[in-house]
């Protein structure tokens, strides 16, 4: 900023210097360890899936900007974040053509159609994933085991499926901890969950790295800590309560906290600046809503995992939360 003595534009006059691109670049830094771990755990499949996810999001955004004659917003990193997060929520052996379709949907129907960055009511990455989940439910719930022996030398057969044809899976699928719990009442060791030694979506397995990335963003004041705290608190309290009431039927709080996409969702998806509330109290309520929905869907729903739908639902509610808790202006009489 060059220093001018006379400011002739309207407020705000003091900027912290953190524009969209600066914040978004820091989110990328925070995500890098997660990305690195997912490539380490799932090998070439993760690398290709992430590349396809980012590429499809970037190209869609660029093409749509061109088509509607706007200046391209590809350079501010926000689309890249959408692509990375979207990629991290996908199962490792998803066919690449599905990854590409989901990326196009994420940016076009999740964001651009509402007016681009800043106007999207939902987290675009999750819109893309939700579309894929509804369109290809079988492919989206088939998981390959992590740390396969040949993960750096060969791609799974399903990844390179010819576009629009159904995938063939070459190895036996590994059940995610949540699916094992839901369908076979089989708990997973907490340490495995924490270190990411389990099967799951690309970026959701290693809870420690996700937590570190989130803490980095919170420390740099680039993420509202009230949202993840609200989510974690609700999930811990509710699941501890149910576990206490019936330990055989309901898993314990530690399992609920570190399994599935809860960490990734709470840290990087629920905190989407556009689709979350702007008031601090609103953020707590929003977090609590997500936490409650996650517990409800996981414990009683038909699907083992519910973070995605919980966040999308809370996204839809968030403007109403803000409106509901608007403070009364000083001196206002009803």
């Amino acid at each position: 900023m060059d220093k001018k003595i006379l400011q002739i534009h309207s407020s705000p006059h003091i900027s912290s210097g953190a524009g969209v691109d600066v914040i978004m670049r820091n989110v990328v830094y925070a995500l890098l360890p997660v990305v690195a771990f997912s490539i380490y755990a799932f090998g070439l499949a993760a690398l290709f899936t992430l590349m396809a996810a980012v590429l499809s999001c970037l190209l869609t955004e660029h093409w749509l900007c061109k088509w509607s004659r706007q200046t391209t917003s590809v350079n501010d990193w926000s689309v890249a974040i959408t692509g990375i997060i979207y990629g991290l929520t996908l199962p490792p052996n998803l066919p690449l053509w599905m990854t590409l379709i989901g990326g196009v949907i994420a940016v076009s129907l999740g964001k651009f159609i509402f007016g681009g960055l800043g106007y999207n009511p939902f987290n675009p990455a999750l819109v893309g994933r939700a579309f894929l989940q509804a369109a290809f439910p079988t492919a989206m719930t088939t998981w390959s085991a992590a740390f396969g022996a040949q993960r750096f030398t060969s791609l799974p057969a399903s990844t390179l499926t010819f576009p629009l044809t159904s995938p063939q899976y070459d190895s036996l699928s590994g059940a995610t901890p949540l699916a094992a719990m839901k369908f076979n009442q089989q708990p997973t060791d907490a340490m495995d969950l924490l270190l990411g030694l389990t099967s799951g979506s690309l970026g959701e397995t290693c809870a420690v790295l996700i937590l570190l990335g989130g803490l980095y963003l919170i420390a740099r004041n680039m993420m509202n800590w009230r949202i993840p705290v609200g989510i974690f608190f609700t999930v811990i309290v509710l699941s501890a309560l149910f576990h206490f009431a019936n330990p055989h039927r309901y898993p314990d709080a530690v399992f609920m906290l570190f399994s599935g996409g809860l960490m990734l969702g709470a840290m990087f998806m629920a905190t989407d600046m556009v689709a979350s509330p702007i008031t601090n109290l609103g953020c707590f309520i929003y977090g609590a809503l997500i936490g409650t929905l996650v517990v409800i869907i996981r414990l009683w729903g038909g699907m083992p995992e519910g973070v995605m739908y919980a966040i999308l639902f809370a996204n839809a509610v968030s403007p109403h939360i803000d409106r509901f808790i608007q403070p009364t202006p000083f001196g206002h009489r009803s």
Binding site: F136, T161, T165
Partner: peptide, 17 residues
């Protein structure tokens, strides 16, 4: 009309589609 190994898009048969 499409080859046998075509992957159906389930969402298209649902109201969402």
């Amino acid at each position: 009309v499409l080859p046998g190994n075509f992957q159906p898009w389930v969402i298209m048969l649902l109201p969402g589609g």
